[in-house]
Structures are given as C-alpha cells and as structure tokens.
Measured scan of single mutants.
Amino acid sequence: CHSECLGNCSQPDDPTKCVACRNFYLDGRCVETCPPPYYHFQDWRCVNFSFCQDLHHKCKNSRRQGCHQYVIHNNKCIPECPSGYTMNSSNLLCTPCLGPCPKVCHLLEGEKTIDSVTSAQELRGCTVINGSLIINIRGGNNLAAELEANLGLIEEISGYLKIRRSYALVSLSFFRKLRLIRGETLEIGNYSFYALDNQNLRQLWDWSKHNLTITQGKLFFHYNPKLCLSEIHKMEEVSGTKGRQERNDIALKTNGDQASCENELLKFSYIRTSFDKILLRWEPYWPPDFRDLLGFMLFYKEAPYQNVTEFDGQDACGSNSWTVVDIDPPLRSNDPKSQNHPGWLMRGLKPWTQYAIFVKTLVTFSDERRTYGAKSDIIYVQTDATNPSVPLDPISVSNSSSQIILKWKPPSDPNGNITHYLVFWERQAEDSELFELDYCLKGLKLPSRTWSPPFESEDSQKHNQSEYEDSAGECCSCPKTDSQILKELEESSFRKTFEDYLHNVVFVPRKT
C-alpha cells in the first residue's frame, strides 16, 4: 500500500485506493498535508475557505447554543480562536489581540433580562453583547459592586439597553466600559436606550469621564423622579442622539420631579488639616426662599486615587461607600458681607490618608415646582503625618564578641513616609551569675543571650482551647457569634421535631 494509506488498500502504491488515510483526505486521495488554498479540518480532512465560511455563517444565523462559528488559524479551520487571539470578521482569520481579548457573548432569543446578581454573573467577562440587555433589578445585597464585577467589562451592545423598574439602582456607572450601543435591534418605538419607572436612579454616568455613542435609535425617559433633566440632556449631547427624540420621548413632568437638581456650584473657602482632623468651610448658599434650606450634607471617604465619582458603590438597598454628615444651616444675616460661612470639623480620621470630599445642599421643593440647590466639586484632601507606631517583631542576635545583629519589621501604621529608623542602645553591667558559677561542674549549661522565638506554653494553649472559665478566673470563653447562636437554635429545633416524629412513629394507638 501507499505510504499515506492506513489499515489496508485495494490497489498497491495508489493513494486513492486506501481504506483510511494516515494524515489527511483531499478529493478522494490521501495526502501528507493540505496544500494551499485548503485548510486542515478536524485533523483528517482538507477543506477550502468557502466550506469553513459556510459553517461560520450557519452557526451565526441559527443562534443555536453550542454550535461553533468556525475560524481560520495556522492553516486550520477550527471552532474558535485560541487564547490571546480574536477573529477578523472580513476573512475569519485569528489575529493577536492588542491588550485583553474581546469576548463576544451571543444571547438566546436576542435579549437577556438581568433581574438578579445570579443572572448578571452569566455575563461575567463579556466585552461584546450580541443582542439586547434588559435591566430589571428590584433589590439585593452589595448590588453596585456585584454588577460592576460582572457587567463592568461590557464595551458594546449590538441591540438596545433597557432599564425598567430597577428600584435598587442609583447610577449606571457599573457599566464602566460601555462605549457603544449599535441599535441594530430596537425596542418598540425605535428606541435604543429605554429608561422607565426607576424610582431611585439619580445618575446615568459621570459624563466628564465617560463617552457613549448610540449609532441608531432614540432615547426614552419616563417616570424617573430623581433623575434630573440636565442629566438626560447631557446624554443626548454626548451620545449623538440630540435631535432624534420626539416631543413625548422625554417626559418633562415625570423626570426629576422629586430630585434636588443642583444648578449652582458650592466653593470651599477654608481648608485646614491635622493628622486626624480636617476643618472645612464653604461659601454660604440661600435659595430664593431661605426657609427652603434644610441644611447641608457632607460626604467623605478614603480615596487612594483621584478618580472618585459621587455615586460609586451606591445602591438604593443601603450600600453606600460614603460617610454622610448632616449639618444645620448657619444663622442668616441681613448683611451679605457678614454672612457666616458654614463648615464642619471632621474628626477621627487616619493620618497621612487622602480623602475625597464634597458637600451639597438639602432643600425642600418650592411652590413653583422649581428645584434649587448647590453642590461642590469633589475635592481631595490629605491629612498630615504623625509619629508612626512601633516597629514590629524586633530580633537581636550576637554573632561574635563585638557585634549584635538587630532586625525588625516595619510598623503596622507608618502614618507617613518613613525615611529612617533611630536605634538606641545602652551598655549593661555583666551578670554576677557568670562569676559565681563553678565551671568545672559536669552538665553545666552556660547562660545564653542568643534570641529564641517566643512560644506559647501548654497552660496558655489549654486556656485558649477551654470553653469555660478556669477556677483562677484568668480566662473566659469568647462570646458566641450570631451565626453560632442561630445554628444552635436550628439544631435544637431539629432535635425537638425529630423526637416528636419518633414518638408518633414508635407509639401507635392500640386498636379498641
């Protein structure tokens, strides 16, 4: 048989008469490798580009789960590009990614509803959504962080984005990388972005840091009482949809009607710091009717980097990364020049730590249904340095008659930039024990000054392991946590139920 035959053949030295091919099969003959313009397919066939392209389009058009959109890589027609490569849609070739590779997620039936953290986790790592997304989240724990972890990498949506009755959302900033909504599939009414009845939605994105392009379709905003109209108009300008909307697409009466839409800028007039305090004062603000001013709200939190936005980490279910302080308005003076500047002394802060701070007014709604208010920009203030805590785990070892090696770990709280350490030492008198000992005694162990690591005695271990207080009263049991108490109650309830079950099964009433 021919060298490319495997198993047997019907005619000697003829690659077209093989029972099976050793390498690849091409047009009725066995070959060692697939010549151009053919590609290896499933490690035994040679196919042309049209064959591989037909497989790709067949799966793409069917949208069946589990099928493969075949691509070409290293002269092979394979189910998908290997790690580190992405497909070129024009020629199906796998090309190296520039940075992290995109991950295209194809949605069944063309859309997916995100109504819980669990459903959001199914899209973790996706960068391109081939379909439409509907966000409908009523509640949950730590929602802002969970949504950002699972949806934060999405850069492109081919269909539309719909935010509907998501009472738990305060902001859409968890879509931190969303840059493009194509609108290839539109919501009824030709809408590519749809926001309806979101009672706590206050911000779409921080438009000073976020760009969003909507290729096709219109915007729809109705019944978002805490979303200011200025935020919607800003989205029109940034996304390129200005002029597409009709009169009733953006409701003037049901958007922002319960919001404090600040239209003035508060400026800080005085800032002073110490290692654990920050004193702030800002310019006074009074609405047209000074009785509408209820006070100020001061927001602050630790910020290692200057990239904080107002609604980071917030949701309507209680999660809030900001510390909020309510401040009463100052006494009002008739003389504008003698107006008191409101302020606040922030206490209990960490030394040498940068804080993000902003302040906003708290006002009631005027009778004319106009909203007044003022808010400052987010500023960054760093507390002063102070003395560091003591170095940890000092170790001293003498390696000769004239040297001592000293080692330690950095302090747990540096409280500033540590530039150097101060080492103090003092000579001590020799131990009298060394002169009084009889060095001729056998088995004498000389006193040693070398360091030995501390260890816990058996008594201390027994005390720590004991669940009861000892007789001397030195140790006591740790208080039980809520989960331990709940577990004990469940076990007790189970024992009672099981005992009742045994009584009912074992003891049967005697027939009379």
Score class of each variant (00 low, 15 high):
H222P: 02
K301S: 05
K267D: 05
K177F: 08
E262L: 00
A120G: 08
L133I: 08
E155K: 06
E184V: 08
L107C: 14
R244D: 10
N320P: 05
R247S: 12
L279I: 10
K226I: 06
H106V: 11
Q403Y: 15
A316M: 07
E109P: 06
W282M: 03
E368S: 10
N334R: 14
E231Q: 15
S116D: 01
L107V: 14
W286K: 04
C126G: 05
L265G: 07
L229M: 05
E184S: 15
P287W: 03
L123E: 01
S398Y: 04
S401M: 02
S173R: 10
L212F: 13
R291P: 01
R347H: 05
A374L: 01
R369A: 04
L252H: 10
S274E: 11
S239M: 09
V170G: 11
T273W: 15
Y300A: 05
Q306E: 12
Y191K: 08
T213Y: 06
D249F: 09
R369D: 02
T254V: 06
A145S: 08
R244N: 05
V104H: 05
G240L: 15
N190H: 14
G348K: 03
I181T: 01
T215S: 13
I405N: 09
F358V: 03
H341K: 13
L196W: 14
M346W: 05
N224Q: 07
F365L: 05
K277G: 13
L345H: 06
R138W: 02
Y300D: 01
F268C: 06
I271Q: 14
N248E: 05
L201M: 05
W344V: 08
K267W: 11
G110S: 10
S158R: 11
T364S: 11
M346D: 01
L212D: 03
Y305N: 00
L196G: 05
K242F: 09
W207E: 06
F221P: 00
T185P: 13
T323D: 08
C261V: 04
V128E: 04
E231F: 14
Q258V: 05
I327A: 12
P329S: 06
E246G: 15
C126N: 02
T185V: 13
G131R: 01
T323P: 05
T254M: 12
V359S: 04
P284I: 01
N340M: 14
S401G: 11
E310T: 07
D292M: 01
R291S: 01
N190C: 15
H106R: 06
I154V: 09
E155D: 08
S192M: 04
E246F: 08
T254P: 05
F174Q: 02
T254R: 07
T213S: 07
P329Q: 05
S260N: 02
I278Q: 00
G373F: 06
G125A: 08
V397P: 11
K209I: 15
E236I: 04
K242T: 06
E231V: 03
S333N: 08
W286N: 05
Q203L: 09
V170K: 08
E236V: 11
F193R: 02
T113E: 07
K267C: 06
D289K: 01
Y167T: 06
L147E: 00
L169V: 15
G295R: 03
Q245L: 12
V104T: 10
L169T: 14
Q203G: 00
L219T: 14
E302A: 15
C105E: 03
L229Y: 13
D384F: 09
L147H: 00
T113I: 09
L227M: 15
L294P: 00
I379T: 14
H210K: 14
L349K: 04
Q258L: 06
L279H: 14
I232C: 10
P342V: 13
Q403C: 09
W352L: 05
W322V: 08
R179E: 11
G256W: 03
W344S: 11
R247F: 12
S366H: 15
Q382K: 09
I214G: 04
W207Q: 07
A168M: 05
G189P: 15
W322D: 11
T273G: 07
Y194H: 14
L123K: 01
F174Y: 13
Q216V: 08
P304F: 10
L212Q: 07
R244V: 11
S400P: 12
F290M: 00
A251P: 11
H233M: 02
G189N: 15
S192F: 03
S173I: 08
E237F: 06
D335V: 13
S239L: 12
N130Y: 02
E237H: 14
L406V: 11
T241K: 14
S400N: 15
L362Q: 00
R124S: 07
I137F: 05
K350G: 03
S208I: 06
M346L: 09
H106Y: 10
A149H: 08
G131Q: 04
A385E: 07
P304H: 15
S402F: 07
L161Q: 03
I357P: 00
T113L: 06
E237W: 10
L345A: 02
A195D: 04
L161M: 07
I154F: 00
K301F: 03
T371L: 08
D384G: 00
N334K: 12
G256Y: 02
E184F: 12
E146S: 03
K409T: 03
L406S: 01
D115Q: 15
N340T: 15
L178R: 02
G139Q: 15
Q382S: 05
V117G: 02
W408S: 00
D367P: 06
